[in-house]
Design a protein around this nucleic acid. Structure first.
Length: 464
RNA sequence: GGCCCCAUCGUCUAGCGGUCUAGGACAUCACCCUCUCACGGUGAAGACACGGGUUCGAACCCCGUUGGGGCUGCCA
């Protein structure tokens, strides 16, 4: 049975890189009926905050990445970590060390050592535990350690290049590699799928598994996601929080679909797939080896496709929260009905839910504003035409799209002004924008009285 | 500096020794559709980092170079 874990540290918001790693783990587990464990790696009390845990869980839930066990706080298992570390001391695979960082650096400088890490100074000093000692792992002096990686193949590192790393801090709190390995053992993790940044410390983990007399799980290090400068996506530097994308109006299904394709593609190279389809076809061996640029533009394209595939009522339902954030949305059954009527023509004009509000504002906002320069250019020169249209509107019995269209086409024919030219001034006068929803439908939903009011108001303004 | 990973259009990728005058998608540009804008359609431009091998044959295998990235903490 495949058991995977996704192990974020709550030191910041949940970003797309983490989301992709979580997704790959999820697919790997689910494709064979395995289990997905959510483990919060919060051993560093200084840097962790509980609210980030909520953020991570919420974002994962929103994306649809569910967990079967957890969230388990690693900090709740400290006693066990210490116990295991001490078993290593007893075995002779660990030792206490009281070197300060500066001491090590000085010695390295003096010795012309090409390496810069810990030099093993305390290896045979047989120090006792004290408030200033850390517990270090005694890496074998020679030989090499091999990581069997499902995406990289075999990675072999000479033991002489692995520093005697710290297991327990001076205050006895466990460090990352130790806690990681102990938990992976206890939680019976079969596959460790994580970002490539963890590859360098994996030999250390392998060494620990060996020392504990346990078989190491299968590793799979997937390439990192990078920004436009090809650097690893960073919580501090790059604005890539899943939460932010949600607020902009990305759909979770679209994000999941796009994210999965960053580093992996199905055999037939098709792009649009459901989570189930991807899960069925996902193969960790097929994951690429080089970093991928997280291209928000392309993800937006995916989102547009997903939005257009939404039913009108689903679209409206998803839109409501965005509308409610505006100052002008009134709600109510009448408005919801109008929204539903406008859904088909709105959907195909947005790639983010958040973009729909500008399109819908002319229909629902009591007041529109027209940029002065735009007014002078598009509206003012055509005051008489606009006034004429206002009159024609007033004479319409039915103020619906077909009637409006017929009326304007008729006017276009008699005035010999092409419809494309004719619609411009009246569009700006009634919406405040040069482009937007198709005018006939837009006017129908805006309502006869409001349209005429706005037309006449602009005629008024033009004469000033 | 040391260790490790990586290398096909600007970007995401297909390709796993001959079917490659290298395919698709995003972005860009042009045209068509069209009440604006979109959507949709058609088309254009655009890549195997470089140098050596191996082989009858290399984008695919090997070595080197160059370039990029990651790690190098009593962070994860």
């Amino acid at each position: 049975m495949i058991r995977v874990r996704f192990a974020p540290s709550p030191t910041g918001y949940f970003h797309v890189g983490g989301a992709r790693t979580a997704l790959y783990n999820w697919m790997l587990a689910k494709q064979s009926g395995g289990k997905f464990v959510l483990r919060i790696e919060d051993t560093d009390a200084e840097r962790n905050k509980e609210e980030w845990v909520d953020g991570i869980c919420n974002a994962m839930s929103w994306l649809g990445i569910t967990w079967d066990e957890g969230p388990i706080r690693q900090s709740s298992r400290t006693k066990r970590h210490i116990e295991m570390a001490l078993s290593l001391l007893e075995k002779g695979d660990a030792y206490y060390c009281d070197c300060r960082r500066e001491d090590v650096e000085e010695r390295n400088k003096a010795s012309e050592r090409t390496k810069q890490g810990y030099d093993g100074y305390c290896r045979d000093r047989k120090l006792e535990k004290s408030p200033t000692t850390v517990l270090r792992y005694k890496v074998p002096a020679d030989g090499s350690t091999t990581v069997h990686d499902l995406v990289r193949g075999e990675v072999v590192v000479a033991n002489e290049n692995i520093d005697d790393f710290v297991l327990l801090k001076a205050n006895e709190s466990p460090l990352f590699v130790l806690a990681n390995v102990v938990d992976d053992i206890d939680m019976e993790i079969s596959h460790v799928l994580r970002a490539e940044e963890h590859l360098p410390n994996t030999p250390k983990a392998v060494l620990l598994f060996n020392s504990f007399g346990k078989e190491a799980p299968l590793f799979a290090h997937v390439p990192v996601l990078v920004n436009e400068k090809r650097q690893k996506l960073s919580k501090r530097r790059d604005r890539v929080a899943v939460e932010d994308f949600k607020d902009k109006g990305f759909l979770p299904e679209a994000m999941i679909n796009y994210l999965a394709l960053l580093g992996w593609s199905p055999k037939d190279n098709r792009e649009f797939m459901t989570l189930d389809e991807m899960t069925a076809e996902f193969a960790i061996e097929d994951v690429g080896h080089s970093p991928s640029f997280f291209d928000e533009k392309k993800m937006e394209h995916f989102n547009g496709v997903y939005i257009r595939a939404l039913s009108d009522s689903d679209f409206v339902g998803l839109l409501l929260p965005f509308l409610e954030k505006t100052t002008w949305w009134q709600g109510g059954d009448g408005n919801t009905a109008k929204l539903l009527a406008l859904a088909p023509i709105t959907k195909e004009r947005v790639s983010l839910l958040g973009q729909a509000t500008d399109l819908l504002l002319p229909v629902f906002a009591p007041e529109i504003t027209i940029d002065e320069a735009l007014f002078e250019k598009e509206v003012a020169p055509h005051a008489s035409l606009i006034s004429q249209v206002a009159t024609l509107c007033a004479n319409l019995d039915q103020f619906d799209a077909p009637s409006i269209e017929a009326m304007l086409r008729d006017l276009s024919a008699t005035s010999e002004i092409p419809l494309r030219k004719l619609q411009s001034p009246i569009r700006v006068a009634t919406t405040g924008a040069k482009a937007g929803l198709p005018l006939f439908e837009l006017w129908e939903q805006t309502g006869k009285a409001t349209v005429i009011d706005r037309l006449l108001a602009s005629v008024q303004d033009a004469s000033k």
